[in-house]
Design a protein around this nucleic acid. Structure first.
Lengths: 340, 340
DNA sequence: GACTGGCACTCGCTACAGTCGAGTGCCAGG
DNA sequence: CCTGGCACTCGACTGTAGCGAGTGCCAGTC
């Protein structure tokens, strides 16, 4: 039952070799490539134990061993040190993110950078509105009965929505409405806003009430309930790396999952603390992703978290490298946000 | 050299059967499934001619025939009638697009709808800024030295950009700047704007000049030159339909192409009149897409065009059906935009 | 008791030969 | 000009055989 140090070393060697070569690794190859100091036969015995415990398995009777999800888990938890990034990588990150002018720009650059560095599919969540505060609300008249509502959040998020008013609305009224919503909502967290928004209707003079009613319902609906969350994606072409051996032959389920915002949010949006999260194969709740692994973390200015980011790839991935990259990128993005 | 009616009928039959079954079609099967009124031997002779002319080819010596890109082209140009949509489909389109509240919403719904109806990859370009006029420009103070510039276009497009001012800027100045840019730019086409924007600097009092200078350079850079164009994409999972037989075995180049905004724009953005455009296999300028076909068209309110939309699929696609769907969706979206 | 060398065994992979059949091209006759 | 017939091609499939990587087990050694 107990796994002594050598057995763990064997497991580590198997994972490393398999990740590098993509081929089942046998006992002979193992002793040749790693300084284990024992013979193949001994390694075979250790392998038998590791297999019995469910950390590795044989695709075919006469083939080498391949790590199982459980094996990768053990590897990640106990056998790997996070690789420090090379200075070149650090510089690449800085250079890439430095020119960003905009939240949009930051997110797009980040997601492409992540995809490029990890050579996997990258996902970046925009700063969540639920974790943002209102910085400013703007009302712009579009026609006599239409307003454009623009909300700017402290995280840099900007959301707009067309509002169809119940009747013509004079410029003075727009000014009043603008002043009022700003007075009441600026600096509040959007997640705590609903009661405040509902109360707005009672604050206005009777003739403005219908206008404020639609306005507040739009605010609630759009900014709190609906597409609240935004997501950027890049690097789907990386899924074809490893030529269909990964993902048990079909990209279908993966691509389908990546098209669903809800799924993506589940993947990287559920971050509470800034800790790194690694989900390997079967550990994924989403059925379509049972053949994939996800490495994700939260990011934000300083130690607060405003959103999540991460990458998705085959279970057979370079975990130490990926984890290091994801962590580093998240940190840089956080610093960038802190400057604003 | 001349292709008589029967030969054309044979070509049509080959295309239809191949599209339906995905398998090379032989002379026997052809006379059985289509009422051609002649024997297989005759069909074989016709096939020989069609092959000589480059409209069909044999994957292997002892296999049936498969249309070439040139064959599809002839089919599309002369042999197919556009299928009218079924009432059910029309209803689906209407239902799907009716609830849209927003340009963003319209575009997202449209792209998903297109992907779903055609079962292919759908691409929708947001209304091009170059084809839009300025409806309103808003300046929102974010901090003492930062403004958020929001531009609302007549097409519904909304763009925002953070502007870092050269120095602190008092509220009155913001008001002045706002009034001025609106005065000069509202109702002008953005494509014709650059000289106007440059002239702005000379219109202001000397103390506002530095502020206006950065503002106008940001306007130029962001709204005219840079990410000017936006694109929505859906249905990439549909690429895996037809199990790797389409796209000669590798999705790689396709997925890569779809990640490049520039490429997508080239695909669907180059629409002048509202005519339907069909590019088949080799006709595509983009090398990565030589194994695919693209059906695209312009859309916009009434007969003007503000952007493009279309789908991408295997050369072996149902052209009449796809063309009909793309056209219908474009028309509905145009109508929707006309209402605003 | 732990490790090792040796050995028999398993089984996927590749190569090769043989068969089958869909489909073709061609030709002679209607 | 069309058709039926016929010889031919060649890919797909099947079965067999040999190879070799890799294993599990066992007896022997330190």
């Amino acid at each position: 039952m107990g796994l002594d140090d050598r057995k763990l070393a064997v497991l580590r060697a198997i994972v490393e070799d398999y990740v590098a070569t993509q081929e089942p690794v046998g006992s002979r190859a193992l002793v040749e490539r790693h300084q284990l100091g024992v013979s193949p036969a001994t390694v075979r015995n250790d392998m038998a134990v590791l297999e019995e415990e469910g950390y590795i398995r044989q695709p075919h009777t006469s083939a080498g061993r391949v790590p199982t999800d459980r094996g990768y888990r053990l590897f990640v938890d106990r056998l790997s040190r996070v690789k420090p990034l090379s200075p070149a990588e650090r510089r690449a990150i800085e250079r890439f993110l430095l020119g960003a002018v905009d939240l949009d720009d930051v997110v797009h650059r980040t997601v492409r950078l992540l995809a490029q560095l990890t050579r996997q599919v990258a996902v970046v969540q925009y700063p969540s509105l639920a974790r943002s505060s209102v910085r400013h609300l703007e009302l712009v008249p579009i026609s006599t009965t239409r307003l454009m509502l623009v909300m700017i959040a402290d995280t840099g998020r900007v959301e707009q929505r067309l509002v169809e008013m119940p009747g013509p609305i004079p410029a003075d009224d727009v000014t009043d409405l603008r002043r009022l919503v700003n007075e009441k909502l600026v600096d509040t967290r959007l997640s705590e806003t609903p009661p405040l928004v509902q109360a707005l209707v009672d604050e206005v003079s009777p003739d403005l009430r219908p206008a404020m009613a639609t306005l507040s319902s739009v605010l609630l609906e759009t900014l709190v309930e609906r597409h609240e969350e935004r997501i950027a994606l890049a690097g789907t072409a990386n899924l074809t790396r490893g030529g269909l051996l990964d993902f048990q032959g079909s990209l279908r389920p993966i691509l389908e999952a990546l098209e669903e915002e809800v799924v993506l949010l589940k993947l990287i949006g559920e971050v509470e603390e800034s800790s790194m999260r690694v989900r390997i194969g079967d550990e994924n709740e989403i059925d379509n992703l049972r053949a994939a692994s996800v490495v994700s973390t939260g990011y934000g200015p300083g130690s607060t978290i405003v959103g999540g980011l991460g990458v998705l790839g085959p279970t057979r991935m370079d975990y130490p490298g990926t984890i290091a990259t994801v962590r580093a990128v998240a940190r840089y993005v956080g610093d960038l946000l802190a400057q604003n």
